[in-house]
């Protein structure tokens, strides 16, 4: 019983880690793709050409 609980706990931690990693990456790529200067100063200008080249809307 204890072993099953430990496995469940490890599995939960793994799922949590995967979720945190994916959400963090999703946030980072959103900053780049939409040029969110309020999160990262200069994000808009730095990735301006990349954003246009992959079809994301920009000014």
């Amino acid at each position: 019983m204890k072993a099953i609980e430990e496995i469940k706990e490890v599995s939960f931690q793994n799922h949590l880690l995967v979720t945190v990693v994916l959400v963090g990456l999703l946030f980072a790529v959103s900053v780049v793709l939409f040029g969110v200067d309020s999160v990262m100063a200069g994000a808009h200008d730095t990735f301006h050409d990349f954003r246009h080249s992959i079809g994301m809307p920009c000014h």
Binding site: V32, F47, D49, F50, I54
Partner: peptide, 28 residues
């Protein structure tokens, strides 16, 4: 399709980072 505004060296860096981040999300 889009007239690039930055130098080739700068674009090589930003396209690498941007593409890499997009690839990380999709790969994950």
């Amino acid at each position: 399709v889009f007239v690039l505004e930055m130098s080739f060296g700068e674009n090589l860096l930003t396209f690498g980072i941007g593409g890499g981040l997009f690839g990380l999300v999709c790969g994950g």
